[in-house]
Amino acid sequence: MKSGVKKLIVSKEGILFCIFLFVFFLMSLLSPGRFLSWYNLQSMAYQLPEFGILALSMMIVIVTGGINLSLTYTATLSMIVGGMVMANISAAGGNGILAVLAGIVIMIGMASLCGVFNGFVVAYIGVTPMLATLGAMTLFEGISLNITKGGAISGFPFEFLMIGSGTVLGIPIPMILFILIIVGTWLFLERSKMGMSIYMIGCNPKVALYSGVRVKRIIFQTYLIASVLAAIAGVLMASRYNSAKESYGSSYLLQAVAASVLGGTNISGGEGKIAGTVIAVMILQVISSGLNIFGLNRYLTNVVMGGILIVVLTINFLTEKRSK
């Protein structure tokens, strides 16, 4: 038991969690009144989920050996299309809950289409993921802009706003969703047969194919699932902003990659733990909220984020070099 605890602490995720605690206490110490305030904790709880879900979506694609540059535009395209339907039903005097349900179903359906597109091009045609999703990113952005003409879709029913701002037993709904998704993606990636195939494909797709794994289909399905996750993040964002626009969340693209890599996911695939990504997301969120409280300009927060990414990778490189 004791050795088990020790093992947990020296594992990558253990170290990350210690860093999280350190950052959290540092922020609390530096600004006890405000960082630990109910308001701040709650606002973190509202922001964390959308970023976290996008990071998990990015991560499962990275584990296959790919990358999804169209991630945030998948989220915004689906929120725009679904949002439009929702706003129209609402404007026509339809039932609010019905409108919300229809909107969400369409958002997820639209994201699935995006996922099918990416998955087909990557898995079945064999285009390098970076290029395929780069093209898709431009494409989805273009379609979104064509629909919104550069503006934002709004006029959502009141019920929709509840998703992003409501609570159940005092816990914000986005947080509940996030926890469910963490458990879901953990089961999917680390415990299911498909997840185990994904790790093996990420390491060596040829061996997986030669072992009777349906490599193309699994890669295809992974992009599909990742897109559905993006749509869920999209729902949260649209609800929080009370509108839908193609540029929402575009800064999350970098951060999602950063969180995956910080969390120990190998950028060339095959390795990575859900826990690592989730803790990395929490670290980044605490840092950005903390810096925000200190009145640091939000642009400088980006600087710090990029800096952390580079510093962590540099440390990775140096420790690897030493261990060799």
């Binding site: 047969k193 195939s197 790790y199 093996m200 390491c203 060596n204 061996v207 997986a208 095959g270």
Partner: peptide, 20 residues
């Protein structure tokens, strides 16, 4: 290159073909 996923464990390799 075709038989083993070198970065993964014996266990992961043996179970790869029988995940179902």
């Amino acid at each position: 290159q075709e038989g083993l996923v070198l970065r993964k464990s014996i266990e992961d390799n043996i179970s790869l073909s029988v995940l179902d």
